[in-house]
């Protein structure tokens, strides 16, 4: 399983991998928003947590179809299904690899980009914590969506449509946690809910995703 993780990471960091793509997208969104909204600091500070969260969500959505598509094309997915490790575990590893190349860099980049959006001081900590807790859920949910659409030629649009409503609770609690943090309120409740979603998704969705892959490859 560790070998699988390392292999996925190597593939992603090579040229043409998903590594830079989502990060670049995140950068573009946060840089473009002030041009659209206007440079007024108060407005930007108010919407900064939401923008960063939506940007991170869309950025991780962008690279979802890569999770299984390449493995499906070159046949290594069939090998994974018949491999001695349980498919659920392999799915979890895939999600972890996706998180390491998208969620983790996004989390680390968010405080830097938050400066551009005038995020108030106490918001930085909560922003980072909420993204660190929430992006794993995004990766796991996305892996499930990717598993559903693995056999399809042009599954990208369908994948977004399937995953979008599933992302909503994570987005609500994550952005709310960051917003409350930025406004100096207590952010504990949404943070706990966010952690609950992440843990629940980690516990349940690998099984659903594995079932979907088995159905797809039958």
């Amino acid at each position: 399983m560790i070998a699988l993780l390392l292999r996925d990471l190597r593939l992603a960091t090579r040229a043409g991998g998903g590594f830079g793509l989502s990060l670049a997208f995140f950068l573009i969104v946060t840089v473009l928003v002030p041009f659209g909204v206007g440079p007024e600091g108060g407005t930007l500070a108010r919407i900064a947590p939401g923008i960063l969260w939506v940007g991170a969500l869309l950025a991780s959505l962008l690279s979802l179809d890569r999770i299984f598509a390449l493995d499906h094309e070159d046949g290594s997915l069939d090998i994974l299904v018949t491999a001695p490790i349980p498919l659920e575990g392999a799915v979890l590893v895939k999600a972890a690899a996706h998180w390491l190349v998208t969620g983790l860099p996004l989390t680390l980049a968010a405080p830097v980009l938050a400066v551009l959006l005038h995020l108030p001081g106490p918001g930085f900590f909560w922003m980072t914590v909420s993204l660190a807790l929430g992006t794993p859920a995004l990766s796991v949910i996305g892996t499930f969506g990717a598993a559903l659409t693995v056999g399809l030629k042009r599954g990208g649009l369908l994948l977004s449509l399937l995953v979008l409503p599933l992302y909503i609770p994570t987005l609500i609690f994550g952005a709310d946690c960051a917003r409350r943090g930025a406004e100096g309120l207590t952010a504990g409740t949404p943070l706990l809910m966010l952690a609950g979603i992440t843990l629940g998704a980690l516990a349940i969705l690998p099984f659903a995703a594995a079932a979907a892959i088995r159905a797809n490859l039958r």
Partner: peptide, 20 residues
């Protein structure tokens, strides 16, 4: 499978939206 997972997340959204 989507319907099952979707149901869980739809319920979750319901509470999240109430909270929001």
């Amino acid at each position: 499978v989507l319907c099952l997972v979707g149901s869980v997340f739809a319920l979750l959204s319901r509470y999240a939206v109430n909270f929001w």
